[in-house]
Write a protein that binds this DNA or RNA. Structure first.
Lengths: 341, 341
DNA sequence: GTGAAAGCGCTAACAT
DNA sequence: ATGTTAGCGCTTTCAC
């Protein structure tokens, strides 16, 4: 850690006061007369004193840090969440310990342990899987403040997130009401459960009295642009007779769009397209992509507020609360031929 | 911090050994016989013991954490760096303290102080400005390990990054050798210096004996897709007579591309286009964008290696070393009409 | 108004 | 083979 930093003791020695007095003075205690405080402050500055927060954390039994664990940062919307969360935490005097699990549950568990060993006051986690939440449930059972960034109403864990089911329901509903009857859903990287969006898709069909054809479910092995491109390739080479595609995120939709451009398939005339997340790259695509707005600011602010509340809880943690934020649709050209780019 | 966690003392009390013995046993010291170790390990598990890393940090005077300060995460390439850096650090047993400065130098300074107070063993920073580096220089002068993620050979601070000047030189050289003589450069968010890419642009012109026209310098107030769109608007409404555009990042280039699509300007036939960074969205744009590859993995790995080396330095820090990684060009359709999408 | 003493949970000499 | 002591840098009673 470089040059041994100045300690309270150094200031005490130099001023002749005790460590205690210096500590109080530096924290602006009214028990210390203003002149003394000023004197001590001067010497502190001179010595380039910076309080050792590690020591303070040990005494106070709080670190004013929280752990943020995401799956990965390839999705711009997760990235935006990371940034917004850090900003919110910083505002409240918390430092962010950051890690990505790379969708590996073992890594997720390890990072949680690491942060716990570092005595992070709480954690915000975007878990790899909706199904494997036991380690997190156990944490909570031990009164450790955790808030998930994906919502599973039955998980027994606090969560704040967009209502993905509702978002998908609205998106697919929009396509259905535009007369589409055979709608492909591209859902990437959901090997471990997480079918909120698929459920929304199905509910929309049921409510509209449209039959569901599982041949229209396309499942690439990830959710990047390349996966969307691949998905489009399988869709169009299989001749599924689809007139619309619902991609479960904008990156996938962008991949589809690229495939269409390359193969002279017109969007939305030959095929309508909807994405999910509302990333800037979708808005500025050749054909601006209709999408479901992900309210990053709102999710981040509420999630942070929730952990902080949990941290402040007196005795046991209150019962878990799941907050689902209802998303809005953004209809652009990719699903609406009357809108012109 | 939830239920008071088990301490060494609790294990000591329960087993009858001293705290010291428990500590040694848990760390696998050969001084403790295997049976004792096993016994202690059992009780530790039973008590759900997790070492308090805050206490350890205080004693050892190292936290095994490093601070990562970025400007913002809106650029996918910075995002990728963040993720790769975290991965590298994690491999080496370091935890990442993360913060964004939002391009505000005051925030940058505050975060540096915060991380220093938390006794981060070192820092990786992508500074707001190339010009205002005094606070970081001062840190280094106090023997604090810092590595910049942008390279200023004269800053007197360690740095590992892509050679942006060289990248721009190559990109513009490519356009020049394709016969372009009036090349616009779109350079966003550089109010505070940072003209490496502009320098590369100029050097390429000089070496090719092509005159430089400052009317071709377009400076939007940021580097997002929207700013690129805006830049394209000013370019085409000013009738600059340009035949090529060099956008200093891919987001800007994507904005230009969107503008062209909307205004029936053909890329590359009417205007050639090059970006910088090689983000996936550029590769999969309607017209795949030629760009300068940003070697995220390499930069991240080397930067981490460098801080870790500095942290391990015995006495004073070695003299600062700036590592510039030479980037490769990726020529795609946007700058080459013989390539067909 | 100021200081002494104890302690946060751990590690590291130095005993025995 | 195990325990004792001191101390990391700070905060918090409690005393004078």
């Amino acid at each position: 850690m470089a040059k041994p930093a100045a300690r309270l003791k150094d200031i005490a020695d130099k001023t002749g006061f005790s460590v205690n007095t210096v500590s109080l003075a530096l924290r602006g205690s009214s028990r210390i007369p203003p002149e003394t405080r000023a004197l001590i402050a001067d010497v502190a500055r001179e010595l380039n004193y910076l309080p050792n927060f590690v020591a303070t954390s040990l005494v106070r039994r709080e670190t004013r840090s929280i752990g943020l664990i995401l799956t990965d940062l390839s999705n711009p919307v997760l990235t935006a969440v990371a940034q917004a969360v850090e900003g919110e935490l910083s505002k409240r005097g918390y430092t962010t310990l950051f890690a990505t699990s790379n969708n590996d549950i073992a890594v997720e568990e390890t990072m949680i342990e690491t942060f716990r060993a570092r005595r992070a006051d709480g954690m915000l986690v975007f878990p790899c899987s909706h199904r494997r939440l036991d380690h997190i449930r156990k944490l909570r059972a031990r009164n450790y403040p955790v808030v998930l960034l994906v919502g599973d109403p039955d998980a027994g864990i606090d969560a704040v997130c967009m209502d993905e089911r509702m978002g998908a329901y609205k998106a697919v509903g929009h396509l259905l009401s535009n007369g589409h009857r055979r709608i492909v859903i591209i859902d990437g990287g959901t090997k471990l459960g997480n079918s909120e969006k698929l459920e929304g898709y199905m509910q929309a069909h049921r409510d509209a009295g449209v039959e569901i054809d599982t041949a229209l479910f396309v499942k690439p092995s990830g959710h990047s642009v390349a996966h969307g491109y691949w998905a489009a390739d399988t869709i169009f080479s299989q001749r599924l007779g689809a007139s619309a595609i619902f991609a479960t995120n904008d990156s996938l939709a962008l991949g589809v769009l690229r495939y269409c451009a390359r193969n002279n398939i017109r969007v939305p005339d030959d095929i309508a397209l909807m994405g999910f997340d509302n990333i800037e790259f979708g808005e500025y695509a050749v054909t601006p992509i209709s999408t479901v707005d992900y309210n990053v600011e709102r999710v981040s602010a509420m999630a942070v507020e929730r952990v902080v509340d949990l941290i402040g809880a007196e005795a046991d943690l209150p019962p878990p609360r799941v907050t689902l934020i209802e998303p809005d649709l953004l209809i652009r050209q990719s699903s609406n031929s009357t809108l012109r780019g």
